[in-house]
Simulated scan of single mutants.
Amino acid sequence: MLKFDEDQFLTRARSFLGLQPQIEEIVAGLSDVDAVFLIGSGGTYAAMWPYEHLLRRNTRIPVRSAIAAELVLSGDALLTERAVAVFASASGTTEDVIQAIEYCRARGVRTVGFTGIADSPIAQAVDSALITEPDAWPFDLGLLLFTTRFLSERGEFAGYDKLVNQLPAVPAALVEVARQAEPVAEAFAARHKDTDFHFVVGSGNLWGHAYLYSMCILEEMQWLHTTRVHGAEFFHGSLELIEPDTSVLLFVGEDETRPLMERVVRFSEKYSQATTVLDTADYALEGVDDEFRGLLGPLVMDTITSRISKHLEKQRDHSLDLRRYYRVVEY
């Protein structure tokens, strides 16, 4: 596979699973919280959405994902000593996140942070630091462990023990997903190496990844024009932009919102000959029961689209590390 280090991939993914005992200990101390905040910036903000979605559907206490910089300016009445705030940053140096941690701690909010750098500012700032392998991404396995344990402790998720017994099979299963996605990714990149506009659509716990892939990969890393649209909102204006040659990239998952995306698929395949459907149901997850497949959708989709990213980089001769402005100039 193009630029795929299997050993590194497995090591990074398994580093999240190694946090299980620490996560369980942290969650045990949160029995009295009456609000949960999932806070990030850019990609880590979008990465929180599947877990806001999961919590919101299962718990009666308020759950909010928040943009770090906006939260510091606007505040929130629920940010008190009875709240917990969860952060994530691969580098551990994201300034907006650091400021949000300081803002929360000044209000007595308990803070938890996932990062790959043990001595980073973010790891030092939070009450409880969850340290992965350096550059480990995505954060889904860690966030899934945290949120399902939190729900389990509250009696709102009955499948935790069964889930965590199956999660060790996930890293190897994702390697097989990457292998299966390789020809799909290569074909997409070859077809779209000169395409400069992409529609990206998702729903449910894949809406966050649609937002992330559009903004953080296609725009930031490939300088391509995109529009990102929620599957439920696609038919409220956005559909008018679809033409026969419009690239429409559809993220179809296995959660309860799948019918929303199936409707978009039917429309897009009728009116655009450049529709690409990425469906997590097409990929086997050896060792994982069907009841958990929907929860793992963000991880599966991230693995598939990561292969597309590598092939776009090659086909377009545009490094995924190249930036004009982000962390290059003052802003």
Score class of each variant (00 low, 15 high):
Phe87Pro: 06
Ala47Asn: 13
Pro259Trp: 09
Arg307Ile: 11
Glu254His: 04
Ala66Gln: 13
Arg293Tyr: 12
Asp119Gln: 13
Phe146Val: 02
Leu249Arg: 03
Tyr51His: 03
Ser306Met: 13
Val164Asp: 00
Leu17Asp: 02
Met1Gly: 11
Arg110Tyr: 08
Glu286Arg: 06
Val248Thr: 12
Ala66Tyr: 03
Ala88Asp: 11
Ala281Met: 04
Leu322Phe: 14
His318Leu: 14
Phe267Asn: 08
Phe139Arg: 00
Gly231Cys: 07
Leu299Ala: 14
Val229Asp: 06
Ala85Pro: 04
Thr115Met: 04
Thr147Ala: 07
Ala232Gln: 12
Met1Thr: 10
Glu286Gln: 09
Leu312Asn: 11
Tyr213Asp: 07
Glu219Ile: 14
Leu54Val: 00
Phe157Arg: 00
Cys104Tyr: 05
Gly113Glu: 00
Glu70Pro: 02
Phe87Cys: 08
Gln315Arg: 13
Ala187His: 13
Leu239Gly: 03
Gly113Asn: 01
Ala210Trp: 08
Gln273Ile: 00
Lys270Val: 08
Phe139Ile: 06
Gln20Ser: 09
Leu144Glu: 07
His311Leu: 08
Ile67Asn: 08
Phe234Pro: 05
Val288Cys: 11
Asn58Tyr: 09
Ala66Gly: 10
Tyr160Thr: 00
Arg60Glu: 15
Phe150Ser: 00
Val265Ala: 15
His318Thr: 13
Pro244Gln: 07
Val264Trp: 06
Ala281His: 07
Phe251Ala: 11
Glu286Ala: 10
Glu240Gln: 14
Leu206Cys: 10
Thr226Val: 15
Leu206Lys: 07
Met215Trp: 14
Ser120Glu: 05
Leu151Thr: 01
Leu143Lys: 05
Glu6Gln: 13
Tyr326Gly: 02
Gly253Glu: 07
Phe37Cys: 00
Ala129Cys: 03
Leu19Ile: 02
Asp245Cys: 02
